[in-house]
């Protein structure tokens, strides 16, 4: 079922990007206008996120309760439920800071690259560097575990 998996990865990514552009979520000015509660507030992101959750919450819940496996793979790959820890809180706060400074989060940054604003490309490159550094920081230290 590898071909189906690959095809639907493309389809799902395509739908996701199409939806982001439809809600103008690819536009940092739109996102910042939502985050600017004390200014000329723009409710678009609220409607968009509301629409997403109205659809996704019942569908995810139904799948999690009724399905034993996804259609094209053996298992659901999902994050292991853990406790709320300093890394989660600190990382999310850092992300919020960066998001509020420019108005880009990862998905929209990738999607809006096609619209040719050079700042999008620079943000994306910096974000990829940050993602790599973050991955290195959060990688389990195999050497230490082996030594212990």
């Amino acid at each position: 079922m590898t071909a189906a998996r690959l095809l639907f990865a493309l389809v799902c990514g395509g739908l996701f990007g199409f939806a982001l552009a439809m809600g103008d979520m690819v536009n940092p000015a739109r996102v910042l206008a939502f985050l600017d509660i004390a200014g000329n507030w723009d409710p678009t992101l609220l409607f968009f996120m509301g629409g997403a959750l109205i659809v996704a919450v019942p569908l995810f819940q139904l799948t999690l309760r009724r399905a034993n496996a996804p259609l094209f793979d053996r298992n659901f790959v999902r994050p292991t439920a853990g406790a709320v820890d300093v890394k989660l809180v600190g990382g999310s706060a850092l992300f919020g800071l960066g998001w509020g400074l420019v108005g880009y989060c990862p998905g929209p940054a990738i999607s809006s690259l096609v619209f040719g604003n050079p700042k999008t490309a620079v943000f994306l490159v910096a974000m990829l560097v940050g993602l790599y550094l973050g991955s290195v920081l959060t990688r389990p230290r195999i050497g230490q575990a082996a030594a212990a």
Binding site: A93, L97, Y104, P106, A126, V129, G130, L131, L133, S135
Partner: peptide, 10 residues
């Protein structure tokens, strides 16, 4: 901001 978003989300 790009760097912060990358590190923070990881």
């Amino acid at each position: 901001a790009g760097l912060i978003v990358g590190v923070g989300t990881r």
